[in-house]
Design a binder for these strands. Structure first.
Length: 713
DNA sequence: CTTGCTACTCTTTTT
DNA sequence: GAGTAGCAAG
């Protein structure tokens, strides 16, 4: 079996798979078969090197990747052995470590995992407890600051205070952590950070782990953050068999704390690091590959890998400019139909990719209009839906009665006469007594109007807690739905109500599938599912997904829509060169998903915030090699003043943006700080005007006409 | 305590 | 333009 597997590899891949023990970094370009190499390496360790499965840890980027790897492995080396390999995402592996060694980590093993929604609520109550104004200190910004700190393993105590604002962050962070702790909850970042702390603080656990894991393998290494790096580096600290696979050019999660410098760090920490490069691409045509390289080579500070393929040139890259987002969507639909009719592809071969989830709407509507099936990754995520979160919150308070965020969510859903006030009193009473709300209810500590309703709720809650270990998740689910009369609450016979109930039933299926697994395992898995995990492969329909979600996937035909300045690259990165490089890598990731056909689309006019807006073509379009294109790219866009020219030429009837503005595209202007510049566009705001100006320093800034003191020259 | 209305933010990207 | 937070009335 194994010999077969190795025979199917090319020399470079084979070299990577059979590399000697010790620290290894495989730099693998897109489509070079890195997942295959990783899987083969594990199989090789099991079969040839006779390593016991439980002594191998393999970290993948998504649960889906772990599942696929396990399936492939089981085919190669036999069912049980593949399953005994410790495999999963960083988050799921950390959750497992923390539950197993909960006492050493100072945790209760039934801790709840809070998602970003829950996190925001905790931030809000922290702000509330500290008497801070959430208008002045935006909860989302606070959450972001806390998350960034945690990803860098910075505790509240270690947080540097440089400004008044950072002093506030520190206090909120402290309070936030305290609330998580009383709720017996961890957020996503805690899973990583607490695992690192556990290994640092407990010699016994550390040595146990270090001894056990003879081999540690990490996929998508370029997107690991500091705590993830520390974690694997520590676990591999004894045997030093750290096998990392990654591609710096595909690093697209910097905003989430990923630090591509981990590649450098790996080299510094392991002078004997063996580096293997995989530069043959097996996925794409030469045309697609050349296009991708033309894009990525504009990034400075990169070590050039020259990718090559033995596939032929294939069709040219189709570049089209449509008049609106709706036209763009229609073009996608029409082209998909054409491809299918001409038998150039089947529906399932096709993907439509975009920068922001908001863009999916126009495409989705076009699919619906055409009566065509489609698959949508992300957007309104299933587990973010109110009804799904409600039912999960019920299960969460049963599993972990200290979870006050979940309690607040369901204590009055459906309405049972326990309002915000009653909940606040309950929370207060419990906190004053140093007990959980659950215990406070049991001890009948409550007084006041809602006492009866509270007592009834307490009875139900106690009943479910008693049932927790007697019933499996599916039966408990049904019991809670019945007792809480949730169905009557949600299913009001409107279309929306039916939809919501259908979602509850879908969740029920997941609960039933859990079988006799403990409730805490079920909740754990549900908290850590990722967007692309639910991608149904057996359904033959085009997929819609963000460029980020497309990582690691491949399709015969790829449409990338919204190639406009402000969308891709996103407006938030226009000012920051590092972020701009990441946008470029995102574009690169998108292009390299395509095996045969690539369509790059943009719209002249796109409505955001209900307002129609002219969009300049993406700078990335200008970097495409013209000889490889079917279609023309208009030059000079973002930074130039001929906005007016193509506006007249191509969009005859766009009345909406001819609102009276003081500044017009092309106007020469002067600003006290930035000097002279040219107006790109101007948008009428309520009682001001937002002017986009490209100054002589080459940078484009958005200014308020009213406040900035911008003058016409 | 609930319901319904108004005002206001908001869009990157996700485990 | 939409979803939600906050507020007033029932």
């Amino acid at each position: 079996m194994t010999t077969n597997l190795l025979d199917n590899l090319n020399p470079a891949q084979r070299q990577a798979v059979e590399v000697k023990d010790g620290p290894v970094l495989v730099i693998a370009g897109p489509g070079s078969g890195k997942t295959r190499v990783l899987t083969s390496r594990v199989a090789y360790l099991l079969e040839v090197r006779q390593v016991f499965p439980y002594r191998i840890m393999a970290v993948t980027f998504t649960n889906k990747a772990a599942r696929e790897m396990r399936e492939r492995l089981n085919k190669i080396v036999g069912a049980s052995r593949g399953s005994d390999v410790m495999m999963g995402t960083f988050h799921s592996i950390c959750a497992r470590i923390l539950r197993r060694d909960a006492p050493a980590a100072g945790l209760d093993r039934d801790f709840t995992i809070y998602d970003s929604d829950d996190q925001l609520k905790v931030v809000k109550s922290a702000l509330d407890a500290l008497n801070l104004d959430d208008k002045k200190y935006k909860p989302a910004a606070m959450q972001n600051a806390i998350s960034t700190a945690k990803n860098e393993l910075i505790t509240p105590q270690d947080l540097k205070i440089e400004t008044y604002y950072s002093e506030i962050v520190k206090r909120v962070y402290e309070k936030y952590n305290a609330i998580l702790r009383t709720n017996n909850a961890l957020d996503f970042d805690d899973l990583l950070m607490e695992s690192v702390r556990l290994l640092q603080n407990s010699q016994a656990v550390r040595e146990k782990m270090q001894e056990r894991y003879l081999h540690v393998l990490v996929d998508e290494f370029q997107d690991t953050n500091i705590s993830q790096y520390n974690l694997v580096n520590m676990i591999a600290g004894r045997h030093r068999n750290l096998f990392c696979v990654g591609d710096p050019d595909q690093s697209i999660y910097k905003w989430r704390g990923a630090d591509y410098r981990n590649v450098k760090r790996l080299q510094t920490d392991h002078p004997d690091l063996e580096v293997v490069a995989l530069d043959q691409n097996y996925r794409s045509t030469q045309t697609i590959l050349d296009t991708a390289m033309a894009i990525i080579k504009k990034n400075p500070n990169r070590t050039h890998i020259k990718l090559f393929t033995e596939k032929g040139p294939g069709p040219k890259i189709v570049v089209r400019e449509l008049s609106s987002a709706d036209d763009e969507a229609q073009y996608v639909i029409d082209t998909i139909n054409e491809l299918i009719n001409q038998k150039a592809a089947i529906a399932g071969d096709i993907a439509v990719m975009y920068r922001t989830n908001a863009q999916s709407r126009a495409i989705e509507e076009a699919f619906v209009r055409a009566g065509m099936p489609y698959k949508l990754v992300g957007a309104t995520r299933f587990y973010a839906r109110k009804e799904v979160k409600d039912v999960l919150a019920y299960l969460r308070i049963v599993n972990n009665p200290a979870d006050s965020v979940s309690l607040q969510r369901v204590i009055n859903v459906p309405a049972r006469g326990i309002g915000d006030k009653s909940f606040a009193t309950l929370d207060e009473t419990a906190r004053a007594a140093g007990i959980t709300a659950f215990e406070a209810l049991k001890q009948n500590k409550m007084t006041g109007r809602s006492i009866k309703a509270l007592a009834e709720f307490a009875t139900l809650w106690q009943k479910w807690v008693n049932l927790r270990d007697e019933m499996n998740v599916g039966r408990l689910f049904d019991q809670i739905i019945t007792d809480s009369e949730y169905r009557e609450y949600i299913n009001d016979n409107t279309e929306e109500g039916n939809d919501r109930w259908a979602n509850v039933l879908e969740l029920r299926e997941v609960a039933l599938a859990a079988g006799d697994a403990p409730l805490s395992d079920f909740l754990n898995d549900v908290a850590l599912v990722s967007e692309s995990d639910n991608l149904e492969e057996t359904v033959n329909a085009p997929v819609m997904l963000t460029l980020h979600a497309a990582k690691g996937l491949e399709f015969r035909c790829v449409f990338i829509v919204g190639l406009e300045e402000g969308i891709l690259p996103h407006s938030r990165s226009l000012e920051n060169p590092e972020e701009m490089e990441e946008e470029r890598r995102l574009m690169y990731v998108g292009i390299t998903r395509a095996k045969e056909r690539l369509y790059l689309l943009r719209a002249f006019q796109r409505s955001t915030w209900g307002r129609s807006d002219i969009a300049a073509p993406s700078r990335f379009l200008e970097d495409l090699p013209p000889a490889l294109l079917d279609g023309k790219v208009r030059k000079n866009s973002a930074v130039l003043s001929n906005v007016t020219a193509w506006r007249v030429e191509t969009t005859p009837a766009l009345g909406s943006f001819n609102r009276a503005t003081e500044f017009k595209p092309g106007d020469s202007v002067y600003h006290q700080k930035f000097g002279e510049g040219i107006v790109q566009r101007s948008i009428r705001q309520r009682d001001d005007e937002e002017v986009e100006v490209t100054f002589n320093d080459g940078r484009t800034r958005r200014l308020s006409a009213g406040i900035s003191g911008l003058k016409k020259l």
